[in-house]
Design a binder for these strands. Sequence first.
DNA 1: CTGAAAGCGCTAACAT
DNA 2: ATGTTAGCGCTTTCAG
Lengths: 356, 356
Amino acid sequence: MTTRAPARSRSRAGRRPTIGDVSRLAGVSRMTVSRVVRDLNVVNTRTRDRVRKAIAELGYVPDLAAGSLSSRRSGFIALVLPTLTNANFSAVAHGLTDGLRAADYHLLIAYTDYSLAEEEHQLRNLLARRPEAIVLTSTMHSKAATRLLRAAHVPVVEIADLPPRPIEHVVGFSNHEAGRLAARHLIDGGFQHIGAVASSSDDGIVDHRGEERMRGFEEELRRHERPTHLVVRQGTAPVSYDHGAAGVRTLLEREPKLDAVFAVSDLSAVGVVMECQRHGIRVPEDLSVIGFGDFEIGREINPPLTTLHVDFRALGHRTAQTLLEVLSHDATAKAPPRIIDVGVSLVARGSVRPRR
Amino acid sequence: MTTRAPARSRSRAGRRPTIGDVSRLAGVSRMTVSRVVRDLNVVNTRTRDRVRKAIAELGYVPDLAAGSLSSRRSGFIALVLPTLTNANFSAVAHGLTDGLRAADYHLLIAYTDYSLAEEEHQLRNLLARRPEAIVLTSTMHSKAATRLLRAAHVPVVEIADLPPRPIEHVVGFSNHEAGRLAARHLIDGGFQHIGAVASSSDDGIVDHRGEERMRGFEEELRRHERPTHLVVRQGTAPVSYDHGAAGVRTLLEREPKLDAVFAVSDLSAVGVVMECQRHGIRVPEDLSVIGFGDFEIGREINPPLTTLHVDFRALGHRTAQTLLEVLSHDATAKAPPRIIDVGVSLVARGSVRPRR
DNA sequence: CTGAAAGCGCTAACAT
DNA sequence: ATGTTAGCGCTTTCAG
């Protein structure tokens, strides 16, 4: 960059100021600047102010890459989400951010589109930046991903499910149990022709948590000697409204006497309700509908949606807490694995009308 | 960490393997390992395989912090979003990720909850990690944030609006024009009592883009000598369903003859429709509704929602393209600012029934 | 309270 | 095709 700036600014022409530029301007050593930047509270007030002034004047922003290389602390925690388009995952991120802020950890977010291959790709990227912990919203990983995670020498928290063989820590709930709760609610409600709309796995695109819910749902049906042939798979994750609309059409073709539907997500449940409206099928008089996730749209539609509720924000908070505990552990002694279940509960609203 | 591992592994006990560990195991210099890792294709095939084997054996993952400190290339681009809970912003992220992947840039995402202070905080964090470019979904920043951005010596792209005084590059559309389109559609439709549901700013929480839409809307009303007293502000960003439900109640109290409503987002528009259903107000027979954003839920409800459409995925792609062009520019010559307008269009659906 | 020396893990630039 | 040297910007450690 050819600049006409006077020679005295040669040291900072065209590049970002470094700690050395600040120290020169303030007339102190780089160490002193470093102490001021990190708020170490050991620097003389007047020196500190002089340094602060120099920092402001130069617009100095410390280089965390250099800092963490030296201190061996990157100061960030990685969160891997299946998708950005899900209010519940956002709630988790919020809970995490809040819980981590006081400890001055920065949260970095990546998403995988429910793809195992993409998860591995993102993990590789993230791990290369040396996060101090890693949070995964998924309990199913490629073999290579699992190996990476184990070799990373970093605390790993799997969230939003209860894996049978966790990598390390877990903050979640049982998706299997969620599905069973839905089935029991419908069976107890006296419904005779119970269907469900799930999504299908395809080519490495897997919504394992949704599948667990469906497995729980089917298992409970079987326990009560009910048929499970009315579970249809519609589209791939992320589940959305149209999955429900298309799914219920299929179900009604297959069983005109259908009287209740469990949708793997509130979003597809809303799709079910909307499609029913279009065909003059009354919810809940003709057909009862139950979803999962307690999304806002479910509370807003008419009738409001019966659903399964998980406190995802609390889940995020608990994850932050767990992380903080684990990270405060002496690095020489690995903290024992924590397994935390935040639970799931059924919220009865107008979209289900018991038959007895 | 007390370990019983044999002494020969002393060099890698309890810590991650470094490039030196790999080079020792493979019997080559660290440079050779570096070349293999970066796929520089200048290494002898047999040597390369030996190195690869060592890498696999040790589970070596390169340290990008160290690498980028040395190469002065961090390899990532930062995306700052107002909120994670917005399908359109997710679409932008997708478009960006896709467009950037070939060039091997990694996208790191942060969100601000529509808070200027939080934006500044996130920016500081992000900038400290030396992104090679920064993408902001907002065109309004705190003074300090603007200063940080200008001092960062990094390309800045503001997206999803058309700011009058851009920091540098822009890929967006006119929110002002979007609001005007909505107003014109309703005026042309022959509506007499036109209202709107906006959100209010509060305490540093600002949805500047939404406000621009409302300003455009009001301006167009005034142009046609229509009153603008039926624009109500309901809640703060992020806008959601309940904003619309509460907003339309207020509007109907204020003007029982209300015949059309523009909602700042499809989400609040859906809230309007749902609230109308609950009160026996027919949409569109009694009240017409128009939203913004063309969210999936708008296509799914009955009647489907008339809305303003922006191709956000394309916006993300164009942003990626712009970034790639700008970044390929010789670092010594700053690329000229690009201003790209992806446009906005009205999508007429069932929720608006013209009166003439 | 402040500073000097050494080095974090990697790559640019220059040998060979 | 491979290696050597130096140094990226910061912090740790130790000395004063």
